[in-house]
Nucleic acid binder design. Structure first.
Lengths: 225, 225
DNA sequence: GCCGACAAAATTGTTGACAATCGGCATGTG
DNA sequence: CACATGCCGATTGTCAACAATTTTGTCGGC
């Protein structure tokens, strides 16, 4: 039917793999909030069985990524701006804490790896590779959390961030925001190099709050369209 | 069979209600980590169908409260001490933030309600009502988060805290820990009354870190038994 | 053209039966 | 007695069919 169907090799996928696939679709803004997720379509697209698809939808419902209504099935949940606001503040608090841990616990090699990642991210900006930018940026944040020993929190933050990534994909990584983020990264790296955990934590919180500010501005602009 | 069965009126329960019931069992330490959750038993205990039970288990698996293994079914997941450590630190960061918000945003009536709750909690201590203490203590923490406007975070923290509550139920609320917690509460209340958001945040973080310290001590003692 | 009633199609909820797998138990062998 | 082997009950995974409900389409009447 649509040219996009069957483009993904998901034959005999497990429940978890199907859930991952749907999550990826939502992140990439190919399934938008409010859109109904019809079981039959998902079966075709994933090449799996109805049973597995329903299990995957239940899991996503528990994560809060979709809502399931009686006899109306699953649809992508719309995260309110209020909710996004709270999630960003949570991220600021948690990642700030992780960054301070990173300063105290990371080995020189791990720190160097982070600096290299930052350079790669900067390189993207000149060539306007916004998608690559997003991928590397996610890796940068995860690197800090994992190296700081907070693997559980890393997974949690990733989940919390999922409903927001769609907005980033659609509106976020543009022009001035990219360079602003790079500047934030530089400040964080500088604090880490100095070994100043408190300053690094503050810089990370600032970085994330800048992201929230940009996102609210974009949202307001979109609504006034 | 056992006298405890059929004690809960869950006829024709929805998927969510079944999940809630299982969560409650885990919190109350009536289903312990490693214990297998046999579908047939759950069907008997909840009076529901296999279909709904399986859906509920999928949701709980997504929350990380149970693990589902191929052909071995669901069992209560054991949270490692390392994981509990991270969850407590996350709580400290998040609830600390909420407490600062509370100082800035709560109305006088809402503040008074919190003081009253603190008094009720203190009253429990003399009469050794540890169960009542737990209930009121949860309400106290939730009150702060909800009034501070962070309703989404309140739900999140509650979920994060679920695997820990079992430990509290079993070992936690005893003797000196109760009075230590009450002292922490007093410090928080004092900071709120002064309107000092920063001090309130610090006191809340200290309170939660004290809880973690006590829990690790108990854990170490139990392991050396 | 718009609106309501009604039928048809599409979609989801539920059930029961059957297949696949695991764990324990008995049995036999050295 | 230790240990491998095969069987059987218990438990979970999977599927296909059917029931309940919503959504869509159609047809008169105005």
């Amino acid at each position: 039917m649509k040219p996009s169907e069957q483009s993904v090799p998901l034959q005999n996928a497990s429940t978890g793999e199907i859930a991952d696939w749907i999550r990826a679709q939502i992140r990439a803004n190919r399934m938008v909030p409010g859109q109904r997720l019809v079981e039959a379509d998902l079966i075709r697209q994933t090449g799996s069985s109805r049973f597995k698809v329903r299990e995957a939808l239940q899991r996503l419902a528990a994560e809060g990524l979709v809502v399931i209504e009686e006899f109306r099935g699953a649809s992508v949940r719309e995260a309110s701006m209020e909710e996004i606001h709270q999630l960003y503040r949570a991220r600021a608090a948690l990642e700030g804490m992780c960054t301070a841990d990173f300063v105290r616990l990371a080995t020189p090699q791990e720190k160097q790896r982070l600096y290299d990642l930052a350079d790669e991210i900067e390189a993207c900006i000149d060539e306007d590779l916004s998608e690559e930018f997003g991928t590397l940026n996610n890796r940068w944040h995860r690197q800090i959390m994992q190296v700081s020993g907070n693997t559980v929190l890393a997974a949690l933050v990733t989940r919390l961030h999922t409903p927001v990534q769609r907005l980033q994909f659609a509106n976020f990584y543009r022009g001035d925001r990219l360079s602003s983020a790079v500047e934030d990264h530089r400040a964080i790296v500088a604090a880490i190099k100095k070994g100043d955990a408190e300053a690094a934590e503050a810089a990370m919180r600032q970085h994330i709050e800048n992201g929230l500010r940009y996102l609210t501005a974009v949202d307001k602009a979109v609504r006034n369209d």
